Simulated assay, not measured.
Amino acid sequence: LQDFCVADNMFVNGFVCKDPKEVTAEDFFLAAKLDMPRDTKMSKVGSIVTLLNVMRIPGLNTLGISLARIDYAPLGENPPHTHPRASEILTVLEGTLYVGFVTSNPDNKLFWKVLNKGDVFVFPQGLIHFQFNPNPYKPAVAIAGLSSQNPGAITIANAVFGSKPPISDDVLAKAFQVEKKTVDWLQAQFWADNHN
């Protein structure tokens, strides 16, 4: 057992540990400027997620934690998504957010709250969840802690309608009980990634 395993540049379901003799304080540091607002104007969904994970801070390797700042434009959202390898705890720093998650089949129960500055909400690992800024005039900001150094993110619309190659429109038309032309239209959209 050891105190830490700073990521080296080789990837095998995680990173190989750097030789402890070569580890420096820089392996545990990032000048991320999390106090600075992010520009949400170019985001189709009105949010920018700034994720600090093992890819950005090698010292996070094997520590089971990462952090994200999420900036929301007025009426911006972090669209429905999952983290396959992490639970999340979200704290609102500024503004108001409507947040929620949906339980697994067969119930698909929605748990939701409206959060104000200082409020906290937890999203269980792997469940579809979202955040939405209901204010048409003011932005919102949140910080999220995640229980993995590499939590992953699967944005539902991007995965379903923006996969490469595309999922057959026959499959999606039947699954969503819509016409193929609706699926074709959805697949033709530019599904933007709000993570940077």
Rank of each mutant, 00 (worst) to 15 (best):
P20E: 01
F101T: 13
A153K: 13
D39H: 02
T82G: 04
P151R: 07
N158G: 13
T62L: 00
W191V: 10
A7W: 01
S43V: 06
L97R: 09
F190I: 14
L127A: 11
K18F: 00
N196M: 09
P80M: 08
L127E: 06
S47M: 05
V16D: 05
E26H: 01
N78M: 09
V16G: 12
L146A: 05
Q149V: 05
V160Q: 09
G76E: 02
F161Q: 03
N150H: 12
V23L: 05
G118R: 02
K180H: 11
G126C: 03
V171K: 02
D3G: 04
L75R: 09
L34H: 09
F130I: 10
M55T: 15
D193R: 06
A31W: 06
A32H: 08
Q177G: 09
P166C: 07
S104F: 12
L63C: 03
T82C: 07
K181Q: 14
A192I: 13
K117I: 08
V92C: 12
N135E: 13
T62D: 01
G145N: 04
E88Y: 08
F11W: 12
H81P: 08
S148K: 01
A159V: 14
V16H: 06
Q187V: 05
Y98P: 09
E88L: 03
A157N: 14
Y72C: 08
L67C: 14
L75N: 10
G95K: 05
A142F: 07
I89P: 01
T82P: 07
L67H: 05
A173R: 00
R85Y: 13
F29E: 04
A73I: 08
K109Q: 15
D184N: 13
L51M: 11
G126K: 00
K33P: 03
P134E: 12
D170P: 08
L75T: 15
F190Q: 13
T96M: 12
V178L: 04
R38I: 02
K164H: 13
A153F: 13
A7S: 02
F29M: 11
A25W: 03
N150P: 10
R38A: 10
Q187G: 04
K180D: 06
E22P: 00
L172Q: 01
T96Y: 09
D19I: 03
Q131M: 14
F15Y: 15
T50F: 14
K181H: 12
V16K: 11
F190T: 15
N78R: 10
D27L: 00
T91L: 11
D193A: 06
P74V: 05
G100S: 11
L63H: 01
F11Y: 15
N61F: 02
L127V: 15
T50M: 06
T103M: 04
N53D: 15
A144T: 13
M36A: 14
L1C: 05
K164T: 14
L97Q: 05
L90C: 12
N158V: 15
M42L: 09
T50W: 10
P151I: 12
P84S: 11
I154V: 15
E77S: 14
G100D: 14
P165V: 07
